[in-house]
Design a protein around this nucleic acid. Structure first.
Lengths: 132, 132
DNA sequence: CAGAATCCAGCCGGATACTG
DNA sequence: CAGTATCCGGCTGGATTCTG
C-alpha cells in the first residue's frame, strides 16, 4: 500500500492557519507591531500601501485568531490600541525570521529572476492565466 | 520631522519577496520538497487540494526565483524532477519553522476563533467585503 | 506523464463617501 | 480618529480539454 506520497495531514490542517499568516498584510502587521503597541493610524502609516479597508479586516482576523489584542479607550476622539498577544509574539519571532531571510536574500532572488528572464527557453511566468 | 512611524523600507522591499513566499501554495511546495526530489505528479499528490494549474505556475515562479531546480529527463513517458536549490533549502528551514508553529498552535487558534465567534459584540469577520 | 490553453465564477481589494 | 458601507474592476484559481 503506497503511503509514500499521500497528502501530509499536518500540512493539510496547517494550511488553514497559514492562509492567514501567508496573507501579505498579516505578515506586515505582525512585523510592524513587534513588541510595541500601535494605534490604528500609526499602523496605517507604518505599512506602506495598505488601505484602511484591508487594515481593518486584517486586524479583525488577527484578533479573531487570538494573535492581536484590541483595546478601545472610551475617549473623544476615539483611541484604539493594537498589540500582539502572547501567542502573537511567538508567531512574530518566526515571521521576523522570514522577513530577515527575505531581506538577506532579496539580492539573490532578484539576480535569479533576471537570469531566468534573460534566457529565452521558458514560458513567461507572468501571464500563465490570461495571455489574451 | 516625524520619522517615527514612517513606512519601513525594509518591510516595503521585502514584501515583493514575501508575496511569493507568502503564497499559500509556495509554502506547501517548499515544505513538501524539503531535502528530497519529487516528480510533478508526486508533488501533486503530496499537496492536497492543489490543481495542476496552480502547481505548474507555483513551480515556475519558484524556479524563476532560484528556489527550485527543474530537471527534465528526455524519456518517454516524460519525467521531470523538482528539488530545492541551495537557496531554496535555506528558505525551507524558515518555512518549516513556520509550519511547525502552525501545527503547534493550531489548537490555540481554533479555540480563539471559537471564543471570538461565541461573543456577539463584534462584526462577522467573514463578509467585510460583500455582505449583499 | 507533464504540462499548455481556454473558459469563467468568485473574491480580493482599491477608491470613495459617510458616521459616532 | 477609527472605523463602516457601497461600488466594482481585475486577478486568482478551479474545472475541463487537448497535446508531445
Amino acid at each position: 500500500m503506497e503511503l509514500a506520497d499521500a497528502p501530509d495531514p499536518r500540512l493539510c490542517h496547517a494550511r488553514h492557519i497559514l492562509d492567514r499568516v501567508g496573507d501579505k498584510w498579516s505578515i506586515s502587521v505582525i512585523y510592524s507591531l513587534g513588541a510595541t503597541t500601535l494605534r490604528f493610524t500609526e499602523l496605517r502609516r507604518a505599512i506602506d500601501g495598505i488601505s484602511q479597508r484591508m487594515l481593518t479586516s486584517t486586524l479583525r482576523t488577527l484578533e479573531r485568531d487570538g494573535l492581536v489584542e484590541r483595546t478601545v479607550h472610551p475617549v473623544v476622539p476615539p483611541r484604539v490600541d493594537y498589540r500582539l498577544t502572547k501567542l502573537g509574539l511567538t508567531l512574530s519571532e518566526t515571521v521576523c525570521a522570514l522577513m530577515n531571510w527575505a531581506v538577506d536574500h532579496s539580492g539573490e532572488i532578484d539576480e535569479a529572476r533576471a537570469a531566468y528572464d534573460r534566457r529565452a527557453d521558458h514560458q513567461p511566468v507572468s501571464a500563465p492565466a490570461h495571455p489574451r
